[in-house]
Design a binder for these strands. Structure first.
Length: 206
DNA sequence: TTGGTGATGTTT
DNA sequence: AACATCACCAAA
């Protein structure tokens, strides 16, 4: 039985790379407007920091990125490629612009609801094996930006299976054009809900 | 199964 | 002008 324990905010007030690695296996919860609760196990993450040219915080605060520099444990949801949304969790101390991108999730509860929102998809593994797909399946967009994911009740995290034995893989990050050598992507090796883009990224053993 | 490509609109 | 993506199609 998975743990439904809430996180302490201090867990996320640390370096994004450590958080990204250690949060694998934790659960993502989403309460829809009609009360339905969706749950997914996080199986793939990437870390982004201020000193990293591919991070949205790299060029300093802008209206979009301001809360990346705020307290940890809040959602950072941004729009990309004209169509899709991506979900991040803000990390480290205030004024440190760091975040974890959630790239892969395994459905745990509410898979029927997820299928409704992903009606084009034939195979279940394609429901949530990518950052844009997660936001579609979990019905996330700018309305869920800046929510408290520690103590909130719309979008939040619990420890889930975080402390189970994991075979963790490491690689460079996906879909970026700079800082491609940083090995800041982490995933549960062999899990089918890890995004397929991994094949195009150089692999590094952990 | 793998690789290439067009769609799309916000941000800088 | 770039972009932390996805779905589709073609080739093998």
């Amino acid at each position: 039985m998975a743990s439904q324990r809430r996180f302490k905010r201090a867990f996320f007030r640390r370096h994004a790379v450590d958080v990204a690695k250690e949060m694998l296996g934790c659960h993502l919860h989403r309460r829809l407007d009609d009360g339905t609760e969706l749950i997914g196990k996080i199986v793939e993450t990437e870390a982004y920091t201020m000193a990293d040219p591919s991070c949205h915080a790299y060029k300093g605060k802008t209206p979009r990125t301001e809360h990346l520099f705020g307290d940890a444990g809040y959602s950072y949801i941004y729009f990309t490629y004209g169509t899709y949304w991506c979900l991040n969790v803000v990390a480290n101390e205030e004024e440190q612009g760091e975040a974890i991108l959630i790239r892969g999730v395994e459905p745990i509860q509410g898979i029927e609801e997820m299928r409704k929102r992903r009606s084009k998809v034939k195979k279940d593994r394609d429901l949530t094996n990518g950052p844009g797909k997660i936001c579609l399946a979990f019905e996330l967009d700018k309305q869920q930006n800046k929510l408290d994911m520690i103590d909130g009740d719309v979008l939040w995290l619990t420890t889930g299976e975080m402390n189970a034995k994991h075979d963790i893989g490491t690689s460079s990050r996906i879909g970026i054009s700079v800082a491609q050598d940083y090995p800041w992507r982490f995933y549960l090796r062999g899990n089918p809900f890890v995004s397929p883009g991994k094949l195009s990224a150089p692999h590094v053993d952990y």
